[in-house]
Design a protein around this nucleic acid. Structure first.
Length: 526
DNA sequence: AAAAAAC
């Protein structure tokens, strides 16, 4: 490449990409002048209506790479009732909500009707938005198909289809849904397709559903960024050992720790660790897929706004979520799949900043650790001596005061499942923010119960009856759940489900009155 | 040894 070419490339600005003046103005207002490689590569083609195959990780500016040209292209024209003009499919609810935020930010000079169709929230409002005519429809596949089957949605008017995070959709078993949806949309559409990797199934999908796509590939972010300091931390096998190791680490790092995500492999452990950290006075929140949708939103908002310094999370938070400025990532568990390690620690050290990651390792993690070191291609240093120096703690798991014989896996969780009131005398919770949040996460009777729960439309009522009869044997089985849930999982569920009246929890913050932090109120609007 | 996603 000549020096001139290089200069020319450096000189690329958003103004050179063919975006409309109104979109450009919004981009400028947001403070951006220079597009990222994926944006510079994809936008010029996308604004011309071409199909694009974008191969890019999250954190590369991928979302704006489709949002900006889409707004440009739908400037003219209006949506008709139940016939959205564009459809964006996302694998998780949070990602979908995040894309909506992007449309709001960059569409501020337009009058866009945006509809967000995700599970876990009421159908009513979503239907209203569809009825009004959506310029932009953002959805997770399940809820979208649900609306479609109810006849609330016609896909024949879709001009632009976006499939985001295709490889993750594959992991999650969404590909049949995606194929079905693709077939429902006219062939004359424009398709923008994004995936971080291109396994054979995904390649097949692109061959089937893209027409002469422009392929834009941005250099794979070095599997683990050089600006992330990675360390391993030894620990005994027990949950108790690991939690103590984590707390020590958190205290050690306190001076330089701005905020941190703490990953667990399992949802139960997210809940348990969250409760434990709160009891120890850390202002932590929690995020996993079994939580009430309102609480998920509230947690994320609280963490982003800096109201919560720690977020204990499952891998729902490992990819794609845009949480800027995370200074630390802690792996409470070694991830079972090596790629997850890369994604998790990739939540720190973004945009060239420095980041730190610590992974708590026990003797039984050896093989997973090997896999990680193989994938990332480097040996990770031990923080403070390796596993050979670990002292295993004695005793029956981490509930020593419970009688012998009792601790089946479920009963061990009793402590975390017990109502908070009973615990209050043991250890005062010193953290009001997390305390409020705990109410929201662990007891998820949506105070303004989703409308469909109160008056399900006939079709759904029938389905519910089926489920109810399936569960007839189990008196306490939640009707929404076809499968009986294991005891330990119930630690995350609402123990009062079905027993409390909505009036008892007018605003969902039982017993906290005026102490509800602002971010909770904001997030609750969903 | 997992998580996620419709009800």
């Amino acid at each position: 490449m000549s020096a001139d070419d290089q200069n020319a490339q450096e000189a690329v600005t958003f103004a050179d990409l063919g975006l409309s003046p109104k979109v450009l103005a919004a981009v400028t207002d947001a403070g951006y002048t220079t597009p990222t490689p994926i944006q510079a590569g994809a936008i010029p083609h996308a604004v011309q209506g071409k199909d694009v195959l974008g191969i890019a990780q999250t954190g590369t500016g991928k979302t704006a790479a489709f949002v900006l040209p889409m707004i440009t292209r739908i400037e003219k024209g209006r949506a008709r009732a139940r016939m959205p003009r564009t459809l964006i499919l996302e694998p998780t609810r949070e990602l979908a909500a995040q894309v909506e935020e992007n449309f709001i930010k960059y569409g501020k000079n337009h009058r866009l009707n945006i509809a967000l169709l995700i599970g876990g929230v009421s159908f009513d409002e979503q239907e209203k938005k569809l009825e009004r005519g959506a310029d932009v429809l953002i959805a997770t596949p399940g809820r979208m198909l649900d609306h479609f089957e109810r006849g609330k949605l016609l896909l024949t008017g879709v001009e632009i289809l976006v499939i985001d995070e295709a490889d993750r959709m594959l992991d999650m078993g969404f590909i049949p849904d995606i194929e079905r949806i693709c077939k429902l949309i006219p062939f004359t559409r424009q398709t923008l397709f994004f995936s971080a990797t291109m396994p054979p199934e995904i390649t097949k999908l692109t061959e089937q559903f893209l027409q002469a796509p422009v392929r834009v590939e941005v250099s794979k972010a070095a599997s683990t960024g050089v600006n992330i300091t990675q360390r391993l931390v030894k620990s005994g096998n027990k949950g108790w050992d690991k939690r103590e190791a984590l707390r020590n680490l958190m205290r050690e790092e306190d001076a330089t720790l701005k905020n941190a995500i703490i990953f667990c492999n399992r949802k139960v452990d997210v809940s348990e660790l969250f409760r434990s950290l709160v009891r120890h006075g850390f202002d932590a929140g929690a995020l996993h897929g079994d939580m009430d949708q309102r609480a998920r939103m509230a947690m994320l908002a609280g963490f982003r706004d800096g109201k919560l310094r720690y977020l204990v999370a499952s891998d729902v938070a490992a990819r794609g979520l845009d949480i800027p400025d995370v200074s630390h990532v802690f792996n409470f568990d070694v991830p079972i799949h090596a790629e997850d390690y890369v994604h998790r620690i990739g939540r720190t050290g973004r945009a060239g900043r420095l980041g730190k990651s610590f992974t708590i390792v026990t003797k039984s993690d050896a093989k997973y650790l090997d896999a990680i070191e193989k994938v990332t291609g480097n040996k990770i240093e031990w923080h403070d001596g390796d596993l050979s120096t670990v002292v295993q703690s004695e005793g029956e798991d981490d509930a020593p005061r419970r009688g012998r014989g009792a601790p089946k896996r479920g009963s061990r969780k009793e402590e975390s499942g017990r109502p908070r009131r009973a615990r209050a005398s043991e250890k005062p919770i010193r953290n009001p923010v997390a305390d409020v949040v705990e109410e929201a996460v662990m007891q998820h009777p949506a105070p303004t119960a989703p409308a469909e729960t109160q008056s399900p439309p006939p079709a759904q009522k029938v389905r519910r009856e089926e489920i109810r009869s399936q569960n007839a044997r189990r008196k306490d089985a939640p009707v929404e759940r076809p499968e009986p849930r294991p005891a330990e999982e119930r630690a995350t569920a609402n123990t009062h489900r079905g027993r409390r009246k909505p009036d008892d929890m007018a605003d969902g913050t039982v017993g906290f009155g005026d102490d509800m932090p602002d971010f909770m109120k904001v997030a609750v609007k969903v």
